[in-house]
Design a protein around this nucleic acid. Structure first.
Length: 217
DNA sequence: AAAACGGGGGC
DNA sequence: GCCCCAGTTTT
């Protein structure tokens, strides 16, 4: 069946009105340089939103460019981003990435998927987030929320989030590749939650394979 | 006390 | 493909 993306996005935009929560994937986005977006995304792994925000702000007060960051010691970075999960691994990656950017990449965060994936701690989700938010290059950033919703809704049928990226790229018009994440992450936090989703309050009820489409045919 | 959280890397 | 990773919060 044909998915009515225009209707779905309209509903999601209406739903978003009234919330001003920064979603976890999009922390530091508005005035964020690609470098800050990259670093705060690394920090957000396995870490709740508020903790990620506080840690990012602390870290960027000390260093908000790769040049400044590489002058910090790993211990200093660790202290700044504590108590984020994986803070030892993350601080090492942040330092390595900053040095790499300054010494080998001309001081610029890579603006290609391949370049980003070559950095330690950067996988498909992080790479696509930096591309879309940092460089306005259309790329679908499938985090666990987007993956869960897309599969529940019946838009795709995949097991791993990374497999949802090409699947979504096939069916979703390109103009939605950037806005989809912000809309869906909020929706996933508030309505389409991992356990006991609030289906009775869901504005996408009729578009959902589980609730609407599947039952009505 | 145990499970959940969430993305990436190494084998 | 499967297993490991680290610290906090929730059950």
């Amino acid at each position: 069946m044909k998915i009515k993306w225009i209707e779905i996005f309209k509903i999601l935009e209406d739903f978003q009105t009234g919330y001003d929560l920064p979603s976890v994937s999009l922390i530091g986005n508005e005035e964020g340089s690609p470098f800050k977006i990259l670093i705060s995304t690394l920090i957000s792994l396995r870490t709740r939103d508020e903790v990620t925000l506080e840690a990012s702000r602390r870290l960027f007060e000390s260093a908000d460019t790769a040049e400044a960051m590489m002058k910090l010691s790993q211990e200093e970075i660790e202290a700044l981003i504590y108590p984020c999960g994986f803070f030892r691994v993350k601080s090492g990656n942040i330092l390595t990435i900053s040095k790499e950017i300054v010494q080998n990449l001309g001081g610029q965060v890579p603006s290609s998927k391949e370049g980003l994936l070559a950095l330690p701690g950067v996988g498909l989700k992080t790479a696509n987030l930096v591309l879309s938010l940092g460089f306005a290059i259309p790329a679908i950033c499938v985090d666990i929320h987007v993956h869960r919703i897309a599969n529940r809704m019946g838009w795709v049928k995949t097991n791993k989030p990374d497999d949802s990226v090409p699947a979504l790229e096939k069916i979703l018009p390109r103009e939605y590749w950037i806005p989809i994440n912000e809309l869906l992450v909020l929706f996933g936090q508030q309505i389409c939650t991992p356990r006991s989703p609030k289906c009775s309050q869901c504005p996408l009820h009729e578009h959902c394979r589980r609730c609407g489409v599947e039952q009505s045919r």
